[in-house]
């Protein structure tokens, strides 16, 4: 479903990504981890073209992201994305946040969009908050709304960019629960996250990045039990033993 082939990116002389190659198959859940500044977020943002890259190619569902002839807006409407800082639209009610792209991008009617929105809010347990504004919700609730907003577009896969990093600890689980449920339903997912418990529970594969390179790309068992690179071993030692 997602194929990356030797993707490289630099800002001026600073190399952010170097020859990143991997594949995500339908129904797989890939967890991308690594120290900060290793290029995880940049990599995942390249998948839907939010970050341009200079060389290599990314194919999403048969469409080349880097091709200038590609209609990026159309491609993005099929790929859901959840951000670290939620990025709900603060000037719209929750239900309008869920409906706006459905009506403006997918040309659904207002009734269809709202109905779909209510259904998804139900699913993330926030139906009662539909008429409120994002500022009135807790971080965990906002992130669940953000997931619902992405799902409202009926995406073929979902990208998560550190979805729990900006949350208070007690709100992390409500978001991870929604993500776990999604994974169990067979959604194809690529998640940048430090939540190793989540990775152990639901990941099909773990990608470990360091200094812009994919250092490990292995099944979660192989990664957690005997990571090959020293860098990944150090990272795991730090993140798991505290």
């Amino acid at each position: 479903m997602i194929t990356m082939n030797k993707v490289s990116k630099h800002y001026g002389s600073f190399q952010v990504l170097t020859d990143c190659t991997t594949q995500v198959h339908k129904g797989e859940v890939i967890v991308v981890c690594g120290p900060s500044g290793s290029g995880k977020s940049t990599l995942i943002k390249c998948v839907n073209g939010l970050e341009p890259f200079q060389s290599g190619e990314i194919i999403v569902n048969g469409v080349s992201v880097g091709d200038p002839k590609t209609n990026l807006s159309k491609l993005r409407s099929t790929v859901g994305m959840v951000f670290q800082n939620f990025e709900l639209f603060p000037h719209m009610s929750i239900i309008d946040n869920l409906a706006i792209a459905q009506t403006k991008v997918l040309a659904r009617t207002q009734e269809q969009a709202r109905e779909k929105g209510f259904k998804l809010l139900d699913r993330v347990g926030l139906r009662a908050q539909a008429e409120k504004y994002p500022g009135q919700l807790s971080g965990g609730q906002q992130q669940r709304v953000a997931i619902a907003r992405a799902l409202a577009m009926d995406p073929i896969c979902m990208l998560f960019d550190e979805p729990t990093s900006a949350l208070d600890p007690e709100m992390v689980n409500e978001v991870l629960d929604v993500m776990t449920e999604l994974a169990q339903e067979g959604m194809t997912m690529m998640c940048v996250t430090h939540e190793m418990g989540f990775a152990k529970r639901v990941a099909s594969r773990v990608i470990f990045m360091d200094q812009g390179r994919i250092v490990e790309d292995d099944s979660k068992e192989a990664f957690f039990d005997h990571a090959r690179s020293e860098r990944a071993q150090q990272f795991l030692a730090k993140i798991l033993h505290h």
Partner: peptide, 17 residues
């Protein structure tokens, strides 16, 4: 915030939208 443009784009909106 720049992320607002990113979120709108990620939902498939054009730059104008």
């Amino acid at each position: 915030p720049k992320g607002q443009m990113g979120a709108a784009s990620a939902l498939g909106m054009t730059y104008g939208q």
